[in-house]
Design a protein around this nucleic acid. Structure first.
Length: 572
DNA sequence: GCCGTTTTCGGCCCGACTGTTTTCAGTCG
């Protein structure tokens, strides 16, 4: 897949043009194309060969031609032309906060800055502040920007969604406790449930913004205040060292502001353009007609006024959702409380921290009607995998508990290792005695993974394939696997793929989940819980499913027990 | 560079905060 390479080229073209003071809209078009291509789930080469590049929103004749050139020759003359006189070391300086294209262009032209060392030097020497329009304060801001930039080695720092949500919830709770605050909501990529986020946006409804800002900036969680005005305050938080932007707006604007600060940027641009054609103006204060506000209290009334369906935050990425909303054709998404059970959990029988009974009472607290117990099989020695006799003992315990429990059914499952030869870790006879079998690869990540998965999927008792790519977002790319072939097999054999909701896995990711659904493959959202706290991750998995536009019936653990068993037993 | 149910040309979202300024440009989201 050359998607990322190509996206990167367009992104650099945009940066280079930006630096040279090129046409704003042209730059925006390149940036948008870069983002779109980066987000594509399909191989761009395949799309090119089908001749359907220009069917993609934001890719027209010009950009399609450049993609064609790159795919056929390995070069993109436009890129080479615009970056000829701009070293890459200069372009990357655009990632420094408070140092934008205009300033960098001047520094390059007037003082010959080409890289980070040059930049540091001219600031130290004082020649920076001598330039017109630049002063000491600006220099200080850029020095701070350089510090952060170096810490991140020039890369954009992203945080795992699951990593920041507890902090967000904590701060939201505190903001709600402020007297003059009537509504609070996370916005931005946190609200859109992106698997990684760059910063935290929170929106507050209040008629006393100054009071809110003052209280907020004195929270112990706040490490440093970057800027603070009447409607917007930016800070760096303790611990995660993440930027958080707080916005405060009055009730009549809260919905408009929520919509705007939720984004995405591309979605906003599209909505505002749409409004403009209808003779309306949309900003974070409301919808205006001839200067008069006609909506803004809630997102719902704004969408309605614009003649479109409500768009769930998870869909707001400008991937065609605006067009569908106008035609009332948005998918009916799976909801967070549609989930009726967790089907991948571990107990003290293998590497979990809790007993079956403890998990069961926790599942009841979640309002679940079933719970799948799936401890590791014997090959998973690192995880204290179960031998045959332990599995039997566990089975007896589950029978006993099921007699006792009224509102929950415990299902007998196993997370069975897929061995190096693609066979499963227990005999078919044992597997047959269980309610369902999850297959998983836990060793040999680079050894014939595709073949092993395909062979395992042929086993009639394996129903669910766990964490199909094996990735850990922050730590490893995952198995060396041809997911397309695995999906083809899963579709043929009527098997289920897991969305593992553990916050560092989120595997399948949203793109793969969408592809699986397109192929008619059913999915299952599990938390892979090793303790009670890990049940909480379920909402992350549902977030992925919603971002993948999945309807409820694509997810088997939204089904009633009766229908679920039919599927797990292969009669569904 | 992209795009079109008034348009194949002429538009392209809109505002907050800061610093260096006396009215605005740059940066960010």
């Amino acid at each position: 897949m050359k998607n990322l390479e190509i996206a990167d080229l367009f992104s650099k073209i945009a940066d280079a043009l930006d630096l040279k003071g090129g046409n704003y809209f042209k730059i925006r078009a390149y940036r948008r194309a870069a983002r779109t291509i980066k987000d594509l789930s399909e191989d761009i080469e395949k799309i090119y060969k089908e001749g359907s590049l220009t069917n993609i929103l934001g890719i027209g004749e010009g950009i399609a031609k450049k993609i064609k050139e790159y795919l056929e020759t390995g070069k993109m003359s436009k890129y080479e032309k615009v970056t000829r006189d701009i070293p890459e070391s200069l372009l990357s300086l655009l990632n420094i906060r408070d140092l934008g294209p205009k300033t960098l262009h001047i520094l390059h032209k007037e003082l010959g800055v080409e890289n980070l060392d040059d930049l540091k030097k001219i600031i130290e020497e004082g020649s920076f502040s001598k330039l017109e329009g630049l002063g000491e304060k600006k220099a200080e801001k850029i020095i701070e920007g350089i510090r952060v930039y170096e810490e991140r080695m020039g890369k954009e720092k992203r945080f795992l969604l699951g990593e920041v949500v507890p902090t967000v919830n904590e701060i939201v709770k505190k903001l709600k406790n402020i007297d003059s605050v009537t509504r609070v909501s996370p916005a931005g990529s946190v609200r859109r449930m992106k698997e990684t986020v760059g910063d935290i946006d929170v929106l507050v409804e209040s008629n006393r913004p100054n009071e809110v800002m003052e209280l907020f900036t004195s929270f112990p969680e706040v490490k440093k205040v970057l800027e603070s005005g009447e409607t917007k305050t930016s800070v760096i938080l303790e611990g995660l060292d993440i930027q958080m932007d707080l916005r405060v707006l009055p009730p009549e604007s809260y919905g408009a502001a929520l919509m705007y600060f939720t984004g995405s940027k591309d979605n906003n641009v599209r909505i505002r353009g749409l409004a403009q054609k209808k003779g309306l103006k949309v900003n974070e204060y409301g919808v205006f007609k001839n200067g008069r506000r006609i909506a803004g209290k809630t997102e719902e009334e704004i969408y309605k006024l614009l003649g479109m369906e409500f768009i769930a935050p998870e869909l707001r990425e400008d991937r065609g959702e605006v067009e569908l909303a106008l035609e009332n054709k948005l998918p009916f998404l799976v909801k967070y409380d549609d989930i009726k059970g967790n089907l991948h959990t571990h107990t003290i029988y293998s590497d979990g921290e809790n007993t079956i009974e403890e998990l069961a009472s926790h599942a009841i607290k979640f309002g679940y009607s079933y719970l799948g117990i799936t401890d590791h099989s014997k090959a998973a020695s690192y995880a204290n995998g179960m031998k045959e006799d332990e599995l039997k003992k566990q089975s007896d315990e589950i029978d006993y508990l099921n007699e006792k429990l009224e509102n929950l059914t415990i299902l007998k499952g196993i997370e069975c290792d897929i061995l190096p030869d693609g066979s499963l870790d227990f005999d078919d006879k044992i597997l047959e005695s269980l309610d369902f079998v999850i297959g998983a690869i836990h060793s040999g990540f680079t050894k014939n993974v595709t073949e092993r998965m395909i062979k395992a999927l042929e086993n009639p008792f394996l129903k669910i394939l766990a964490h199909p790519t094996g990735r850990l977002i922050s730590r490893r790319v995952g198995y060396d696997v041809d997911l397309k072939s695995v999906m083809a097999k899963a579709s043929e054999e009527d098997k289920i793929l897991e969305i593992n909701a553990y916050y560092d896995r989120l595997d399948l990711n949203e793109y793969n989940a969408k592809e699986a659904n397109r192929r008619g493959i059913k999915l299952c959202i599990n938390t892979d819980a090793h303790n009670l706290r890990m049940f909480d991750w379920m909402y992350l998995g549902v977030g992925i499913a919603r971002r993948a536009w999945l309807p409820r019936n694509a997810i088997i653990n939204t089904y009633d027990l009766k229908d679920l068993i039919k599927i797990l037993k292969g009669n569904g």
